[in-house]
Nucleic acid binder design. Structure first.
Length: 277
DNA sequence: TGACAGGTACATG
DNA sequence: CATGTACCTGTC
């Protein structure tokens, strides 16, 4: 068990931020997570956060996974004080971190995410894990499932995935899994590429368009300059009649995208006011 | 009943 | 290059 005093960290907000589909509430203050083949429970009371892992696992995986070395306070400080919309978004979702998720899992999850809602995405991911994922035991001795390897999904049939609720995304995922196995896109090389290079590679995959590629760049490769534009963010951008000030936030606009996305989804809704200034 | 959900592939002009 | 359309499926 690891206990940390953390700032700019709210596990509930992270779970609701829509970047990770395997971080789920167990109770009011406790969440479960499966990633990197491991199972973790996270409990938070105010700034006190407990992680159900050893010191070694913390150092090897989770400290980096939760992006604890990035200066979020500094990012928030850079937000225009007169931008009422962003200020409010930061106030509501300032505990969000951009997770450093596994590449393959992120690719698969965001192919499934298109024209889809979060509960159903979670259901699809669960189904894939249950059917094709390796089984393991958590620290209590309870079984859990890992996210399936590309090989497992490449061997699946389109019909099989349709039955699991993926709908028309089923052939996309099978094709992309096969492309990854054939190394038509080499995932091992992606982390060393620039944002633009990585995005171009990802766009070769089936079912990966501009928006999904940006999500993968942001949530797996940690290119926090990536700014995925979806239906919610389009609504947000409309609040800026003069255009969103991307220049001001060059290099980390993706973090603000997450604050805004969370705010659009869980914050004050039906508020058509512009951003001010 | 119909629109919508963190869009994309594919076909056209 | 820009626009148009079909696409699984559950939920409101």
């Amino acid at each position: 068990m690891i206990e940390k005093e953390l700032t700019d960290f709210d596990i509930r907000q992270i779970a609701l931020s829509g970047q990770c589909f395997r971080l789920r509430p167990l109770s009011e203050n406790t969440f479960s997570l499966t990633a990197f083949g491991r199972y973790l429970e996270i409990s938070q009371q105010g700034g006190k956060v407990q992680f159900s892992c050893t010191e070694q696992e913390w150092k090897e995986i989770w400290e980096n996974y939760f992006d604890l070395h990035t200066d979020y306070a500094g990012i928030k400080k850079a937000v225009d004080p007169e931008d009422f919309y962003l200020q409010e978004a930061v106030r509501m979702g300032g505990g969000i971190r951009i997770l450093r998720q596994e590449l393959w899992e992120t690719i698969a999850a965001f192919i499934i995410s298109q024209q889809n809602n979060i509960p159903r995405i979670q259901k699809c991911v669960d189904a894939l894990c249950g059917e094709f994922g390796r089984e393991a035991e958590d620290f209590r001795g309870n079984p859990y499932r890992c996210f399936p390897e590309p090989e497992a999904l490449a061997a699946a049939s389109e019909g099989q995935l349709r039955e699991m609720g993926l709908g028309y995304r089923a052939p996309y995922l099978v094709k992309t899994a096969r492309m990854v196995c054939e190394k038509e896109v080499n995932l091992e090389e992606l982390p060393s590429l620039s944002y633009e290079e990585a995005k171009a590679e990802l766009l070769k995959l089936c079912g990966v368009g501009v928006k999904v590629a940006d999500c993968i760049c942001l949530f797996a490769l940690h290119h926090i300059e990536a700014f995925p534009v979806d239906t919610h963010i389009k609504a947000m951008l409309k609040r800026y009649p003069k255009g969103f000030p991307f220049e001001r936030y060059q290099g980390f606009a993706g973090v603000l995208q997450q604050y805004a996305f969370y705010y659009e989804l869980h914050g004050q809704k039906g508020n058509g006011k512009t951003a001010g200034s």
